[in-house]
Design a protein around this nucleic acid. Structure first.
Lengths: 129, 129
DNA sequence: AATTATATACGAATTCTTTCGTAATTCAAA
DNA sequence: TTTGAATTACGAAAGAATTCGTATATAATT
């Protein structure tokens, strides 16, 4: 399989977030959205997206003059890999410690908390089988 | 306050993990523990720890010839900051999405799951006040 | 057709991090 | 005291990531 060792850099991840949210987009669109958060030159964004294409993090359609880029790795799979690494690096592998910290320090809606409890219950049910 | 914008690199974080686990340590000790996971030259470790001292990520006691290094930022505060940034970068700010992914894909003991449920219940109780 | 605007390509400068060789220093052992 | 071992200091090389200037090509406008 391809893209097994995905490791987008921070800039690349910013761009992936935009592509995941927007769907296939031109460099200009991505650059404009990027600039809502911080200043980045157009050619900088272009260059990074070209590098991402080389790495197969994105695919691009070059039929029209304005190339259209699309994420070629899924948001969920990427998040999962990055999460694994983050848990190792920051919480010494204890995902539960991370969960506790995240729950303790970020506001969650009642609905979200219920969702999490439901998920835990379904995990516990599975374990008992 | 100092160290407000902590941003340890990956190598620095590895070393911090060791210092948090071991308490104040010499470069040699840190380097040996580091080498249980991967090959790193002694002077490499030394250099990084010296840089960390410059950045005030660690303090060092230079009274004896063998300098003793100690983490100067707490594990919890560091984890919290890194977690915040990670949630932003990877989960577009949705800590709950991160929690769901972490719960869904990492094995948790029955006890840990109960702990999390208890935490959620206590959060819900607080919210109702 | 000439001009202007918009795009991509390319390469190089810059910055950040990691790595390590070498020199200088201090301590311990012979 | 001399030799050898362990330590820190220093600087520079190597790599990775980011940034951007400039050239070139294409399309749109006048």
């Amino acid at each position: 399989m391809k893209n097994d060792n995905i490791r987008p850099t921070e800039s690349e991840l910013e761009i992936l977030q935009i592509l995941w949210a927007q769907g296939p987009s031109s460099v200009r669109t991505v650059n404009e959205l990027l600039n809502e958060k911080r200043d980045v030159g157009y050619t900088t964004t272009l260059k990074i997206m070209q590098i991402m294409a080389d790495k197969h993090l994105v695919e691009r359609n070059t039929e029209s003059r304005t190339h259209i880029y699309e994420a070629s790795i899924s948001e969920e799979a990427t998040q999962q890999k990055l999460l694994d690494r983050f848990v190792d690096a920051t919480f010494r592998g204890s995902a539960m410690k991370l969960v506790m910290q995240a729950l303790g320090n970020h506001k969650a809606s009642k609905q979200e908390l219920e969702d999490i409890k439901a998920l835990i219950n379904s995990i516990e049910k599975k374990d008992n089988k």
